[in-house]
Design a protein around this nucleic acid. Structure first.
Length: 455
RNA sequence: UCCUCAGUAGCUCAGUUGGUUAGAGCACCUGACUGUUAAUCAGGGGGUCGCAGGUUCGAGUCCUGCCUGGGGAGCCA
């Protein structure tokens, strides 16, 4: 008898009715009766589970009745269309226990809180909710690569260890090979001869490659040591950072929009079962929301116009919106709801943005753009980069960025400079948007946040 | 980092102005049941009330400190 997986039945449809099959997987639920029993069986290869029916004619009937939720089993039997509920099920000829799961197995067939599931993060992928979330995550990652590979972008692996100081993106984790339990930190004697850290961005190196391949993207882990305790921040997260040469801000926004819609569309096509379940769980029609998103043009508004809208809003904000200042969370929320689900805000005041962004002709704003999305906050942040050597150097000096250490980054403006633009997309925030999950800790397998580095 | 709420059985939760032996549902064990699907019905076992102090004749309940988690804010993607 050939060993098969549930995907052979539900996805590939390679196995037809009345065929003998053998499957290995886990018990999600088990309902016992005197003369027969029903096992909800899943093997993780598709979202769907299948019901296994066994009866007292089997020699080990009483043992099977004792198999508990969470146990791994092997099932042999015939695939049938049930006359009782009109769905596929397996009438077992043999069920054997592979790995028992004792009575205190934490994941029971009932509703658990997300907080509890986080504490058993090594078991939660077996739940239907996290089967859906992590399948979507996997397909979304593939869609990201597919989009850029179809456009012949070069996938660049930027370093995770860096001695770049002040990349303009938040606090970094120091990395050391010194035995700090014995000696005081003297980084001149450290592995790299100076203080090194985990990368907070791959953008600067990405720009070097964009100046060679024209279109590139990165997709990898990023680390920030900020003491942020929110639903949208992680200390370790995955980021996608495309960088495009000979590209200015409006064209960048076109790319961002096209890219995002491509990924969303792909999920609606490849993750129907998962979206259906997630819609039920999160009480939002995700499929409908996503299809509307794909069909609607994302609004574009300057920071100045956004402030005007906020000032005229019939709402009392805790923080008064001001020209030249950053937006508070309540402002972002209002704007994203005002414009539908998402909105590009561009031309930001230069004083609140990073050193590498191109200063506009008004000398007050930079060619930066943030995409604000309901629930996920700032989903993408991008900008046209400062391509002029003198202007970039002056900005670095003004903002206290060590230009000597970043000489190579400056030199990119010396040797065949070109206008270029890029953006960063927080992958977990994208997964939140796709799945409707409200806490970023629930869309990454094992989350790292302040005071939490479990598993 | 600040503000705020919470922590009671494996899980979800109740526990009155401080007062006898801390309860329920699910899970588990025993039994009943010919198609269940969060199966149902009867019975049973299961507790360091987050941790450490304190107040009191008496603390799950009140006070202090700490730990952990949630929500909000800030920082950011």
């Amino acid at each position: 008898m050939k060993k098969i997986e549930l995907q052979d039945i539900f996805l590939k449809k390679e196995f037809g009715l009345n065929e003998e099959v053998s499957l290995q997987g886990w018990i999600r639920n088990h309902r016992k009766q005197k003369q027969m029993g029903f096992i909800d069986f899943f093997d993780g290869t598709v979202f769907e589970s299948i019901q296994v029916v066994y009866d007292e004619k089997m020699t080990n009937f009483s043992e099977i009745s004792g198999y508990r939720v969470g146990s791994s089993i092997e099932v042999q039997g015939k695939l049938i269309q049930s006359e009782y509920n009109n769905s596929l099920e397996i009438v077992a000829t043999e069920v054997t226990l592979i790995g028992d799961s004792p009575e205190n197995f934490p994941l029971q067939p009932k509703k658990h809180s997300l907080e509890f599931l986080r504490e058993i993060a090594y078991l939660r992928p077996r739940s239907r909710l996290f089967q859906a979330v992590f399948r979507v995550r996997s397909v979304a990652a593939m869609a990201v690569h597919q989009y850029f590979q179809d456009k012949n972008y070069v996938y660049v692996h930027t370093p995770l260890l860096t001695t770049n100081d002040g990349e303009g993106a938040g606090e970094a984790f120091t990395v050391s090979a010194l035995d700090l339990s014995k000696e005081k930190a003297d980084f001149s004697k450290d592995f790299f001869g100076k203080q090194a850290s985990l990368a907070v961005t791959g953008q600067l190196e990405g720009e070097a490659f964009a100046m060679a391949f024209k279109n590139i993207y990165t997709f990898g882990p990023t680390f920030r040591a900020e003491n942020s305790n929110t639903k949208t921040h992680l200390a370790e997260f995955w980021m996608i950072e495309p960088e495009i040469a000979f590209c200015e801000l409006p064209e960048l926004m076109d790319l961002q929009e096209d890219f995002l819609k491509y990924v969303v569309k792909m999920i609606t096509e490849k993750c129907a079962s998962e979206l259906k379940f997630l819609s039920q769980y999160n009480q939002t029609d995700l499929l409908d929301r996503h299809l509307k998103f794909v069909d609607t043009q994302i609004a574009r508004v300057t920071h100045e116009d956004a402030i005007t809208i906020l000032k005229n809003a019939p709402v009392k904000f805790e923080f008064t919106p001001e020209y030249g200042e950053d937006l508070a969370k309540e402002h972002e929320k209002y704007l994203s709801e005002h414009f539908g689900s998402a909105v590009f805000i561009y031309n930001w005041p230069k004083d609140i943005k990073a050193f590498y962004m191109k200063v506009n002709d008004d000398m007050k704003t930079v060619a930066a753009v943030d995409l604000i999305v309901v629930g996920s906050g700032e989903l993408m942040g991008g900008s046209q980069r400062e391509a002029r050597y003198e202007q970039l150097h002056d900005r670095m000096v003004q903002m206290g960025i060590p230009s000597e250490d970043l000489y190579w980054y400056l030199n990119l403006r010396k040797f065949g400079t070109a206008e270029h633009s890029g953006f960063g997309l927080g992958f977990e925030r994208l997964i939140m948007f796709l799945t409707g999950m409200e806490n970023i800790r629930d869309v990454i397998p094992f989350h790292r946040t302040p005071q939490c580095c479990e598993f």
